[in-house]
Structures are given as C-alpha cells and as structure tokens.
C-alpha cells in the first residue's frame, strides 16, 4: 500500500513537462505503481490537451504537408534498448527505467553502492540508483534544490516516516537527514537530485573532501 505520493504541484509539473528528465523518470516510476496519481496526472494532461487546441496556429514552412506525407511510408526504425547490467538482474525494475543506460556500480562501503542512470540532463542534475543493505544508515547530508526518490524494493525510514516499495519521497535544502534501511531486506531506490548531495556530518565531510563529489 502506497503511503507517500508526490505533492499535487509536482504531478502538475510532471504533466506539463516542467521537471528535468531525471525527475520526470522518478515520477514516471511512481505512476507505474500508483493509480491515484495516474488519475491526477491524466487530468492535468487533459488540461495540456485543451491548451494545445487553443494555441494560436503558426504558419508552417512552404510544402510542410508534402514533406510530412513523404515520411509516412518510411520504415519505422527499431530502437535498440540498452541491456541492464548483471548486478540488477535480481531486481524487479520499474518499466520506465528499462530503456535507460545504467552505468558502473560504485561501492562506497561493503553495504552501499551507487550506479548512475543516464538521462538527458542539465549540468548539476544527478540521477542514480542507490542500494543499501539491511541495517545501514546513509551519512548525514542535505541537498541543494530538490531530490526525488522512488523506492524500487525494500524500505527505508527518514524524517518523513517509513517509505516502502512504490513510495515517493521529496526532500530539499531545508532537510538534513540520515535515511536508514529498515526491514528484512536491503533497499534499492531510484533518485534524481537537482545537484549533488552535501554531506553535513564532520567525518563524512572529511571523506567527501578526500574522495571528491560523490552523488
């Protein structure tokens, strides 16, 4: 049972295409599992459709129709879907993630790893998978801008409560947190952040200075 949903204005931004591609991806994963939010988004898409109909028509270039009709018979190219790396084979991944390229896994501790997800992006945006084993806690950190999280498997607990499979979390620079994995299994999440996280605890800050920016 999904407990945490994107705020209404996030769903409106999604429907209007106003989020960056990484954030769009995280919300799309939530929508796959959540009928309540899908209905909200479809209402907003209806608004988009109505606005499209009302847009003042722009004059098209000379022979635009001819050019269009000439393309109809061309064979439809097949898009090659990237294959998922082996370390994700045992996870039940959300469909919107399946067309994406996932990069190499980097372990930060024996129990925690990160893997980048390739989305078209504005410079500072970071979109990645993070896996944390049972009973692990992420270093205390905060964010610049917003960070969206979709729980793919397992559960974690944070300032906002407990987040299970299918739940959506949004944090921003007003929140300093140390999310921890609860439950019997590890937790895999898809995250997209406007900018890299900033570690806030002293030991972590030292590590960050030594290793450079992580995610």
């Amino acid at each position: 049972m999904i407990q945490h949903h994107p705020a209404p204005e996030i769903l409106a931004e999604y429907a209007g295409g106003a989020l960056h591609a990484g954030a769009m991806l995280v919300v799309a994963c939530h929508l796959e599992t959540c009928a309540v939010c899908r209905s909200e988004v479809s209402l907003w898409e209806g608004v988009g459709g109505a606005l499209l109909d009302e847009t003042a028509p722009e004059i098209l270039s000379h022979r635009a129709l001819e050019a269009m009709m000439a393309r109809l018979d061309a064979a439809e190219p097949q898009s090659a879907r990237p294959s998922m790396p082996d370390f994700l084979k045992d996870f039940d991944l959300p469909a919107p993630l399946k067309g994406r390229t996932v990069g190499r896994r980097r372990r930060v501790t024996p129990n925690i790893w990160f893997a980048p997800v390739d989305v078209p992006g504005e410079g500072s945006v970071r979109t990645y998978l993070v896996y944390a084993g049972r009973n692990t806690v992420l270093a205390e950190h905060t964010h610049v801008g917003r960070e969206f999280t979709h729980v793919i498997t397992g559960a974690f607990t944070d300032t906002g409560g407990r987040y299970d499979k299918g739940d959506f979390a949004c944090t921003d620079e007003t929140i300093i947190h140390t999310p921890g994995v609860t439950g019997e299994t590890g937790c895999l999440c898809l995250i997209s952040a406007d900018a890299p996280m900033r570690l806030t605890g002293l030991p972590a800050r030292i590590i960050q200075r030594l290793t450079g920016t992580l995610y």
Binding site: A15, M24, G46, G48, G49, A50, L51, L52, D53
Partner: peptide, 16 residues
Amino acid sequence: AGASTWIFAIARNLSI
C-alpha cells in the same frame, strides 16, 4: 485519452 490530450503528451515527451 482525448486526441489532443494524447498528442499533447507525445509533444511534451519529445521536447524533454
């Protein structure tokens, strides 16, 4: 979905 709504979603996705 209505036609304009469907086409709107296609156009939005293309621009992203």
